[in-house]
Design a protein around this nucleic acid. Structure first.
Lengths: 154, 154
DNA sequence: CTGAAATAATCAGTGCCCTGATTAATAGCT
DNA sequence: AGCTATTAATCAGGGCACTGATTATTTCAG
């Protein structure tokens, strides 16, 4: 006895939501490029020449995961990776022409997919949906980084 | 140019939400037992003697994933797996005493964690949070299973 | 009863996600 | 200059998630 109702567990809902998104992405956007891969391409369209760590920071991928994603994108020829002459630890990342084309194509399809995905909600509800999820995710992330905004203080 | 704002992409938010949950679970609930593993234990507390496929259906895990999760739980001695004498394809699953104890212990911790996780939202917002996510996830799942509720029809 | 379709489970292969340990390079202190 | 953080990236290892193929068993049509 004493089983729990998972439909009121945010973790379970988050997992189901992500699975649902994964499937839809796969059928409506791309079978080759995944959503995290697109996020990396997008970050480098916004800021070409970032290093790996910073890209991860921008899109919410940890050091290990971002390394794998970038290695796949590089293998596919969508990304260029050159050692930073100023700092030999870093690699500077940049989209190839093919990478730019792919990003452009997927941007269109992603917009279409998001519309379908969010279709069950009216526009006001969509705004609430974003707001609530973002607040929960931000707060939980804040629990990990005890403080970053304390700046100057004795 | 033409980079997109990921904070309005439900897939990106879903991923971040799940990551945040993963981290909190790890620190507040268990480093050994994961959230999907708990979901399986919970399903078998509610309905002992289910087979693998049905467990997956209950908790939203596909056939491959549920097989891995169950094999880990079995290895840890939390689960018993016996061939169904009525149908030699199936295995019937049941918690061991240790599995029951573990489920009970984690149930308490999970409740605490959920409270912390959802703390940024007031009670009304939490209800909306559940409702919106569930509606989006359900609709997207519905897109895969073209029809299951058509029952008897020419 | 026998052969074909369906079903439960497994396996192989790819990708995401995290941690802890290691390596290479830079930065800072003395 | 020399020693010590610190930092960027990689590696090893465990777990979740999906697809397509395979195996064993059951079901069903004839």
């Amino acid at each position: 006895m004493a089983a729990v109702d998972l439909t009121t567990h945010p973790g379970h809902l988050a997992r189901r939501l992500q699975q649902a998104h994964y499937l839809l992405w796969n059928t409506m956007v791309s079978e080759e490029i995944t959503s995290p891969q697109f996020a990396v391409l997008n970050a480098l369209v916004a800021e070409p020449g970032l290093d790996q760590r910073t890209v991860g920071e921008r899109v919410g991928l940890d050091r290990s995961t971002v390394a794998e994603v970038i290695s796949r994108l590089t293998r596919r020829g969508l990304l260029d990776k050159v050692r930073d002459p100023q700092d030999g630890r870093r690699f500077l990342l940049r989209l190839t022409d093919d990478g730019v084309r792919t990003h452009r194509k997927l941007t269109v399809r992603t917009a279409r997919m998001n519309q379908i995905f969010l279709a069950p909600l009216c526009v006001e509800e969509q705004a609430v949906f974003f707001d609530l999820i973002r607040r929960v995710a931000d707060a939980a992330e804040g629990l990990r980084n005890p403080a970053e905004s304390l700046a100057t203080q004795a």
